[in-house]
Design a protein around this nucleic acid. Structure first.
Lengths: 229, 229
DNA sequence: CGGTAATTTAATCACCTGAATAATTGCAAT
DNA sequence: ATTGCAATTATTCAGGTGATTAAATTACCG
């Protein structure tokens, strides 16, 4: 408190630090933080990710996270809602389009409409794959927090798809359709998330089937399961 | 350092603390630690669990974890291997028995043999359900550590089942069978782990189908998927 | 122009974390 | 008896953790 109140001798190679205060153009640091948080949460999960890392990767002070989001948990929620909401919306759209085009679609068509938004996000570049992993992680967390988020974001689209599928499968009671739908959720979550188990199981014969082929295989498998007598 | 070298005034209601030194009968604290670690890891994942909590729940000093296991990570490995090895061994046994009884089993029979050990463990009481959750969590962790463990414990039984299934499904190329098998892994992992999503998806109509009925439904679904043309 | 509000930083807090150490006790072999 | 090993504890360590505060800088509104 008594001496060297001035700046320490700065590294002349250091990039020009942002100084505090309102920025001139404000290139929305909020979104930058969300992007980096998405990556961090995907890599190490909620507990494993450090707010310091997230801030550093975004080139931003740690306190800014609190400023924008309040807490680490609320930051996570926001990350999840941002893309989850998008996926859910796309699902609704695709189902609308499908029902508009054909009043009695096949099981395959309905499943394809349901899965495509996730698939497209995974291969969209731009952190999509990270979000998909983060989401798969959330799906295996039994905590109340996780459950609440999933409900909030996904339940509405899921319920609609179950209803439509039920109409496609007149021989199968509704409750059974919904049970099978929950099987389906586990299946695609795992495949979306996976980063090596497929290679192990096929003993190296199949490592990456490619976006389209994998989706086809999955739809065929799931549709057959749905129709099981 | 200078005064009060003696014990602080102890809470007279405190239970008699175990004093250091070799115990008289040594009711294997090692296993006690493993049990509590299993619960803790299942509840909050690897990063979220605290060695302090684990030790406390086991009624044991924290340093004992290091004494027996070396580190938190090695403790986790041991927890995983203990029951994972058991499950893998059971799978081998059941497959042996099945092939002994019928040289050409149905897909349903093979899948049942594969799934039963996990199912039985989940409903065995005695932390079985906790282990199953922990395992499902591990399945959605992409880290190298997780991958290595799964390989070590499960690959041998998985490869055998893929081979037998391939024989049951002569119309389907081997690679495709193994891809479908990896679909299957995701499906049952999710169902084993699930603690509420089923209820959401069925809008409350189905919360718990009961051990046997759920396994039947799952086998029917998966067998149909395996056979998909 | 001048004041107020928004945005950002550096610095710090209180607490927690896994790990390590050294002391303590009981048992078994000599 | 004495010594040495095994199992257990209380205590401490070094380093992180999310959160918080106070100050700094700029934009915006009158």
């Amino acid at each position: 408190m008594t001496d060297t109140p001035a700046k320490p001798p700065q590294d002349p190679l250091a990039e020009p630090r942002r100084r505090p205060g309102r920025p001139k153009d404000a290139g929305d640091l909020r979104d930058l933080i969300l992007d980096q948080a998405e990556l961090a949460f995907a890599e190490t999960g909620f507990a494993g990710a450090r707010t310091r890392d997230i801030a550093e990767r975004a080139g931003v002070n740690q306190a800014l996270i609190r400023y924008y989001f309040g807490s680490k948990e609320e930051l996570f929620d926001e990350v999840f809602r941002r893309r989850g909401g998008l996926i859910s919306a796309r699902r609704h759209e695709f189902l609308d389009e499908l029902l508009m085009a054909t009043p009695a679609p096949t099981v395959e068509q309905v499943l394809h409409a349901y899965l495509l938004p996730q698939w497209a996000m995974k291969y969209s570049g731009a952190n999509g794959a990270a979000f998909v992993r983060l989401q798969a992680r959330l799906h295996s967390e039994p905590e109340e927090h996780a459950l609440r988020l999933r409900r909030e974001v996904y339940d509405s689209s899921v319920h609609r798809y179950v209803e439509v599928l039920s109409r496609c499968l007149p021989g199968i009671p509704r409750d059974r359709v919904s049970i099978r739908f929950s099987f389906l959720v586990g299946t695609y979550m795992f495949m979306l998330n996976d980063l090596g188990r497929l290679g192990d199981i096929t003993e190296g014969h199949v490592v990456d089937l490619g976006k389209d082929r994998m989706l086809e295989e999955l739809v065929a498998f799931l549709a057959a399961g749905m129709r099981a007598s």
